[in-house]
């Protein structure tokens, strides 16, 4: 079971998730402090560790649109959050897969802050409202990266294989 701690709308850009002012900070260990930096309430709760790992952000369509900055994923990954959205922008989705940030695409999701969600293989059940929402699975090719433990591990495997063959 996971609690929705923040609900937001459509077209939330990476400028909102991780403002450009903090782009000089790049290391995944340092980016979490600037997650939603312009939203004092959300940023404050995260930094004060008031949000349990596994907690959920519920969003509308096209979450993570705009800049390709990977900090927008690593800052959320730092708190081990799950994002359930009606849809994700392409680069944000790929970056999240690469870094192991948990994204769930549920095109009809309805949930409010404080709701309890149960996320399983192919659906999200909102335990608070009793409604069930179908999810769209990741393309198989992307699942391979997740199964390897992220893109760095996946690439490492390939590099070692290539070296052995050479």
């Amino acid at each position: 079971m996971a609690t929705v701690f923040f609900k937001t709308g459509d077209d939330i850009s990476t400028d909102v998730i991780y403002p450009g002012r903090y782009m000089a900070t790049v290391l995944p260990t340092e980016t979490p402090q600037f997650a939603f930096a312009d939203n004092a309430e959300v940023n404050g709760k995260l930094k004060a560790k008031q949000v349990a790992p596994g907690s959920v952000i519920v969003a509308g369509k096209n979450f993570g649109c705009g800049s390709s900055r990977e900090q927008a994923c690593s800052c959320l990954k730092g708190y081990e959050l799950t994002i359930v959205a009606k849809g994700f922008a392409r680069i944000f989705l790929q970056n999240s897969i690469n870094l192991g940030l948990n994204l769930i695409t549920a095109p009809d999701i309805e949930a409010n802050e404080g709701d309890e969600l149960e996320i399983t293989g192919d659906k999200v059940v909102n335990k608070t409202t009793g409604k069930t929402f179908a999810t769209i699975p990741l393309p198989a090719a992307r699942q391979a990266i997740i199964d390897a433990g992220g893109l760095i591990a996946y690439t490492r495997k390939r590099v070692v294989e290539n070296a052995a063959r050479a």
């Binding site: 790049v26 390709s68 990977e70 994923c73 680069i91 790929q94 970056n95 690469n98 870094l99 393309p139 090719a141 992307r142 391979a144 990266i145 992220g150 893109l151 760095i152 996946y154 690439t155 390939r158 590099v159 290539n162």
Partner: peptide
């Protein structure tokens, strides 16, 4: 097309873009 920094690290290592649909 645009990619993230980790994916670029993979390109630097392998010379290919992985799993492009």
């Amino acid at each position: 097309f645009g990619i993230g920094a980790t994916e670029m690290a993979s390109v630097w290592s392998l010379g290919v873009a992985l799993n492009i649909e």
